[in-house]
Computed example of a mutant assay.
Amino acid sequence: MIENKDMGQPKQFLLVLLSVVFLFLTYNLVTAIMHYKKVNSKRWTPAELYNELLIDPVIEMPENAKKTKNERLLFHVALTATDAPYSKWQCRIMYYWYKKTKNLPGSEMGKFTRVLHSGSPDNLMDEIPTFVVDPLPPGLDRGYVVLNRPWAFVQWLEKATIEEEYILMGEPDHIFINPLPNLARGGYPAAFPFFYIKPTEHEKIIRKYYPEEKGPVTNVDPIGNSPVIIKKDLLEKIVPTWMNVSLQMKNDPETDNTFGWVLEMYAYAVASAFHGVQHILRKDFMLQPPWDTETGKKFILHYTYGCDYNMKGELTYGKFGEWRFDKRSYLRGPPPRNLSLPPPGVPESVVTLVKMVNEATANIPDWDTK
Results as ranks from 00 to 15, higher is better:
Asp284Thr: 14
Asp233Glu: 15
Ala273Ile: 00
Pro211Val: 11
Ala191Met: 07
Tyr196Met: 03
Lys231Met: 15
Phe259Ser: 11
Leu180Met: 15
Gln248Trp: 10
Gly170Trp: 06
Pro253Phe: 07
Leu281Pro: 04
Asn225Lys: 01
Lys198Leu: 12
Leu183His: 08
Leu183Lys: 07
Phe195Lys: 15
Ile197Leu: 08
Gln278Leu: 03
Met243Glu: 11
Ile206Asp: 03
Pro253Leu: 07
Gly187Trp: 05
Val245Met: 00
Arg185His: 15
Glu163Gly: 10
Pro172Cys: 13
Pro253Cys: 07
Leu235Glu: 08
Ile229Ser: 01
Leu287Met: 11
Pro253Gln: 09
Asp221Arg: 09
Ile167Val: 15
Lys204Trp: 06
Ala191Gly: 14
Pro199Lys: 10
Leu287Ile: 15
Thr258Arg: 05
Lys250Ala: 12
Phe259Ala: 14
Pro179Gly: 13
Lys204Ala: 13
Tyr209Met: 14
Glu171Thr: 07
Lys283Leu: 01
Glu203Trp: 02
Pro199Val: 06
Asn251Asp: 14
Tyr188Ser: 01
Ile229Thr: 05
Ile229Cys: 01
Pro199Arg: 10
Pro172Glu: 15
Gly276Phe: 05
Asp233Gly: 03
Met169Gln: 13
Pro289Cys: 13
Tyr188Arg: 12
Glu212Ile: 11
Gln248Tyr: 09
Ser272Ile: 09
Phe285Lys: 00
Gly276Ala: 07
Ile167Ser: 12
Met249Glu: 04
Lys208Thr: 01
Pro240Cys: 06
Lys283Pro: 01
Ala190Gln: 04
Asn178Tyr: 04
Gly170Pro: 11
Tyr209Leu: 12
Gly186Glu: 07
Lys204Ser: 15
Glu171Tyr: 01
Leu183Thr: 13
His202Ser: 10
Leu168Val: 00
Asp233Tyr: 15
Ala273Thr: 01
Asn225Asp: 12
Ile223Trp: 06
Pro199Ile: 12
Phe192Tyr: 15
Phe194Thr: 03
Phe195Pro: 00
Pro253His: 08
Glu163Trp: 04
Gln248His: 12
Ala273Cys: 01
Pro253Met: 07
Pro181Ile: 11
Met243Tyr: 13
Trp261Tyr: 14
Pro181Gln: 05
Thr218Asp: 11
Pro189Lys: 13
Glu165Ile: 05
Gly170His: 08
Thr241Trp: 04
Glu264Gln: 11
Pro227Leu: 13
Tyr268Ile: 02
Asp221Val: 08
Ala191Val: 09
Phe285Pro: 01
Tyr188Phe: 11
Phe259Asp: 10
Met286Ile: 08
Pro222Ile: 11
Val228Gly: 06
Pro179His: 11
Ser246Arg: 08
Pro240Ser: 10
Pro172Asp: 15
Lys232Val: 05
Pro211Phe: 07
Val262Asn: 13
Thr200Asp: 07
Ile205Tyr: 02
Pro189Tyr: 08
Pro222Gln: 12
Ala190Trp: 00
